[in-house]
C-alpha cells in the first residue's frame, strides 16, 4: 500500500441504501404476510415493533436495562479488561520467571475458556451482596456479568500488549540501556508509548467483539436488550413477529458496531503506512 491511498469511507452510501431498502422490503413482506394470516384484525408488525422499541432500547422505567445496558456493560467490561490486561500483559514480558509463568497461565486460561462458562462461574460464585465491616454493598447481576465478560477481554488485551511490546525492535531496548535508562523507565517512557498506536486497532476490534457478545448476559438473567426482546415476544405470542423483532435487535447492534469496525480498518491503514 502506498502513502497516497485513499482511506475507505466510514459508511458507503450505496451500501447503506441497499441495506435499508432490503430491510424495508423484508418488513413490508412480513407485514403483508401477517395481515393475510390474521385477516387484518391485529396491529401490524411495524406498529408492534414501534410499541416495544422504547423498552428494548432503554429498559423498564426507573430501571437500568435494555440496549443502553448492553452499551454500559461493554464500556465497563472493556475498561476493567483493559486495565487488568495491561497489568497481565506486562507480567507476560516480565524478567521474573514466576510472574511470567503465572501471567501466562492466567492468560491462557481466560483466552481459551468459553465466555458463557466464565459468565456462569462469576454469577454463581459471587454473592448478590457483600458485607464489609457492617456495610452492605449490593452486587447486582449486571455488575457481576460485566466482571465475567471482562475476564476474556483481560486475557486478550494482555496478548495484544505482549505482541506490541515484542514488535518494537530490540535496538530500542539496547539504545535505552546504553543511555542508562532502567528497565521500568525504558518500558514506560520508550516502549509503551510506541505500542499504543499498534494496539489501538486490535483493541477496538475486541471492543466490537465484546459488544456483540453482551447479549450473552441475558442467559444469566440480566435485563438487557435480548432479555427484553424475548419478554416482548413472549407477551405478544405471535410467530410472525419472531424475525422482525430479532432483526430490530440486530439492527441496533449493527448500527453501533459497524462504524467501529470501519473506523478500526481506517486506523489500521493509517498506522500501517506510518510504521
Amino acid at each position: 500500500m502506498t502513502a497516497g491511498s485513499v482511506p475507505a469511507p466510514l459508511l458507503t452510501p450505496r451500501w447503506l441504501a441497499t441495506a435499508a431498502l432490503l430491510c424495508c422490503a423484508a418488513l413490508a413482506a412480513g407485514e403483508a404476510w401477517a395481515q393475510l394470516q390474521t385477516g387484518g384484525t391485529r396491529p401490524g408488525v411495524l406498529a408492534t415493533l414501534w410499541k416495544w422499541t422504547p423498552l428494548v432500547l432503554f429498559g423498564p422505567p426507573r430501571e437500568f436495562g435494555g440496549f443502553a445496558l448492553n452499551i454500559a456493560v461493554s464500556f465497563l467490561a472493556m475498561a476493567i479488561g483493559t486495565l487488568a490486561g495491561l497489568v497481565l500483559g506486562l507480567g507476560l514480558v516480565s524478567n521474573f520467571a514466576p510472574v511470567r509463568r503465572l501471567s501466562w497461565l492466567v492468560t491462557q486460561f481466560f483466552r481459551n475458556s468459553p465466555w458463557l462458562v466464565l459468565l456462569f462461574f462469576v454469577m454463581l460464585l459471587t454473592p448478590f451482596q457483600l458485607r464489609v465491616a457492617g456495610i452492605v454493598i449490593p452486587l447486582p447481576g449486571w455488575l457481576k456479568a460485566t466482571v465475567g465478560l471482562s475476564l476474556p477481554i483481560m486475557a486478550n488485551v494482555a496478548e495484544i500488549v505482549r505482541g506490541a511490546i515484542n514488535s518494537i525492535p530490540t535496538g530500542q531496548w539496547e539504545s535505552a540501556e546504553s543511555l542508562a535508562f532502567s528497565r521500568l523507565q525504558t518500558l514506560w517512557r520508550i516502549i509503551l508509548p510506541q505500542c499504543v498506536k499498534r494496539m489501538i486497532p486490535p483493541w477496538m476490534n475486541w471492543y466490537a467483539i465484546l459488544t456483540m457478545a453482551t447479549p450473552l448476559i441475558s442467559i444469566v438473567g440480566v435485563n438487557d436488550a435480548m432479555t427484553l426482546t424475548q419478554d416482548a415476544l413472549a407477551a405478544e405470542q405471535r410467530s410472525e413477529l419472531l424475525m422482525p423483532m430479532y432483526t430490530l435487535l440486530l439492527f441496533f447492534f449493527f448500527v453501533y458496531c459497524y462504524p467501529i469496525a470501519r473506523w478500526t480498518i481506517h486506523l489500521e491503514r493509517r498506522y500501517a503506512v506510518r510504521n
Binding site: 416495544w52 423498564p60 430501571e63 413472549a234
Partner: peptide, 16 residues
C-alpha cells in the same frame, strides 16, 4: 417470571 404470559409477563411500558 417475565416471559410466561399470562402468569408473569411485561407490558410495553416495561411493568411486570
Amino acid at each position: 417470571k417475565t416471559d410466561y404470559p399470562p402468569w408473569g409477563t411485561r407490558d410495553a411500558s416495561g411493568a411486570i
